[in-house]
């Protein structure tokens, strides 16, 4: 055992021993160990957020978000269980019925993480009833479009703008059922300093923030999740190289 290995702490996920550095989250340690814990709001390079709750695991029997929960020596994590799969499916289905997700004409289809999560969890139809909310489309920016119908309020754009772009283009406004992404200008995204090259323009897991004039460059059927489930690269042990 090397000195570095000795410094690591150890815990288990579904009975499998996982080594981790102090300060890592369960989600990060799991990914490096080749274990995929389904997640949507968590994104490599961004600070943990914990809003989608898809990554809910049991830590010593208690539900916790794997993306915000720091690892601890000896903790017992349950991830791949029928109960948790059902809980995650229910949450993903909540996201589907809460917004207006029309995959059939969405540019993100095939690359969409929400859709991919539905595929991975085997969702054929949500158990919840559709809400069909009235939401806005903001096309005021010359290069980027915001379609709030598809937003899942994961805050990846908020964090990417702040943490990676050094800007503050996005922030949540309102609360509860009315919560939505606000932009740093009265008249829409066009009035902000958002640039098409910003990481924030790429952080969206769904088709809410999409770039203009580059749609459908990759045909439907040849996209990221068309043939392989989301999480495959982690399960193939490629998380570190990501």
């Amino acid at each position: 055992m090397s000195a570095q290995d000795a410094a690591k702490l150890s815990f288990t996920i579904d009975g499998k021993e996982v080594k981790a550095e102090p300060g890592q989250t369960i989600l990060q340690a799991a990914a490096l160990a080749g274990i995929y814990i389904p997640h949507l709001c968590a994104m490599k390079g961004l600070s943990p957020w914990g809003s989608c709750r898809v990554c809910t695991v049991l830590v010593n029997g208690k539900p916790q978000a794997a993306c915000t929960m720091p690892v601890a020596e000896g903790m017992i994590v349950e991830n791949d269980t029928a109960e948790l799969k059902d809980l995650r499916s229910s949450i993903v289905e909540m996201l589907f019925v809460e917004g207006n997700h029309f995959c059939m004409f969405c540019e993100k289809s095939g690359n969409c993480e929400l859709q991919a999560m539905g595929y991975r969890l085997g969702m054929l139809q949500p158990r919840h009833d559709y809400m069909f909310p009235t939401r806005q489309v903001d096309a005021s920016h010359p290069d980027v479009m915001l379609d709030h119908n598809r937003c899942i309020l994961c805050a990846r754009c908020i964090r990417a703008s702040k943490e990676l772009d050094g800007k503050n283009v996005f922030q949540f406004i309102h609360r509860g059922a009315h919560k939505r992404i606000g932009v740093d200008a009265a008249g829409g995204a066009g009035g902000t300093n958002l640039a098409v090259t910003d990481k924030a323009a790429e952080a969206c897991p769904v088709g809410c923030i999409v770039k203009k004039r580059v749609g459908f460059a990759v045909p439907i059927g040849q996209r990221l999740y068309d043939t392989k489930p989301i999480g495959s690269h982690i399960e193939a042990g490629r998380a570190a190289k990501e």
Binding site: N100, M104, F105
Partner: peptide, 19 residues
């Protein structure tokens, strides 16, 4: 068997649901 997006989630016709 509910077949296709219109049957399973309303589909394109359901675009009117927000109005």
């Amino acid at each position: 068997v509910s077949t296709g997006d219109c049957a399973t989630m309303g589909g394109i016709p359901a675009l009117r649901n927000t109005i």
